[in-house]
Design a protein around this nucleic acid. Structure first.
Lengths: 200, 200
DNA sequence: GACGAAATAGAACGATCGTTCGTATAGTTA
DNA sequence: TAACTATACGAACGATCGTTCTATTTCGTC
């Protein structure tokens, strides 16, 4: 019962890596087991089905996101500093070397957005939670007096999310080195607009 | 030579539809031929390889984007009106019923961004062209006096692109009906910031 | 050290993948 | 209409997919 959990983690670690490249469907039990030096059936026994493997891969990715991005942001002071920490950690996350094919949550989101099932349900919930985290962070920033009182927290969450998606695209598809500069400039513009009496 | 081109178009039409759901790899010659009432080998003969099929699917999608979004924008007056037309047509494109799985260019971009090959090369080029189109449109808007002279056209292109990606995500993964409102509000904020002496 | 359980391996399954080949049909041209 | 070519089909290929089964090895506990 000890050993099993260890290998399961080792499997999921490599599975996240592979799925970031090839997608959740492109992720294959055969290649995954080969790369890990395991037998196909031995690996399979840990999950019982490919659906379950995909689900656990998604869960692993979400857990890591919370650990890498959410938690550090929560330990920053409420208001603008927290939002800033969240954003910067998110950018770091997007280039995490443990996902050489780019953020798995982005890849899986595009892959699953129109395919009903438990994988989509789980991922959708995770994205909603992340969105609500940003909404709440924006509200706290308003309460702290950092942001203007008529700011729409949902709008800020949308734009924050959009900036990171834009970064992902320009960085990975266009391979434009200015991706980070663009993203940070957009973020600063968003912050400036969100602060008290920004322009009217 | 006549008949062949017709069926080829019919194949590509359905292929774009299927690939928008299942991705370019998920697109399968077997299911594609079945849905069209063709034999696998008969369909295959039109392309010679799956790689070539994928490439032509991408080309078909890019051509349609140019026809649906780029060309109408070009027939709008230079400057802000053109950018506005481009953006609105882009949003319409994102919900085009001929791609029930969402914009193929977004899906393929995430799928191919880390897989070298002619498909990625072609798609990357298409995205660069689209980006440059936005850059040029922004420059024209500056020249027309609609936008401030110190505006960074690349930055505007980045943010425009980001807004649409955010729309795609919130609309399709979160299934939030406010996606359009969010996107348009972000767009108006971007325009306001880009106009002459917006806030300083 | 022996025993029961957990973990892994190996072989095989039907299904489907992309692809090839030979053949028949359909369409175009002379 | 005859000849020719483009188009489509059907069967089969080896490879790989997820999955199932049985057997073997490894582990934790008494």
């Amino acid at each position: 019962m000890r050993k099993g959990a260890e290998t399961r983690e080792r499997i999921l670690d490599q599975a996240v890596r592979l799925a970031s490249r090839d997608g959740l469907d492109g992720l294959t039990i055969g290649t995954l087991s080969t790369e890990l030096g395991l037998s196909k059936s031995g690996l399979f026994a840990h999950f019982g089905s490919k659906d379950e493997l995909q689900l656990q891969v998604l869960q692993a990715a979400v857990e890591r996101f919370e650990q890498t991005v959410i938690r550090p942001a929560l330990s920053a002071p409420r208001g603008e500093p927290r939002i800033r920490a969240f954003f910067e950690n998110w950018l770091v996350w997007e280039d995490d070397p443990s996902m050489p094919g780019g953020c798995l949550l982005v890849a899986a989101s595009v892959e699953l957005d129109d395919r009903p099932g438990p994988q989509r349900d789980f991922l959708s919930r995770a994205h909603q939670d992340r969105f609500q985290f940003m909404v709440k962070a924006a509200r706290l920033a308003v309460e702290a007096g950092h942001f203007r009182s008529d700011l729409d927290p949902g709008q800020l969450a949308f734009e924050l999310n959009a900036i990171v998606l834009g970064y992902h695209h320009v960085q990975r598809m266009l391979r434009d080195a200015r991706a980070g500069d663009y993203a940070r400039a957009a973020f600063e513009r968003l912050l400036a607009h969100s602060r008290r009496s920004s322009h009217e």
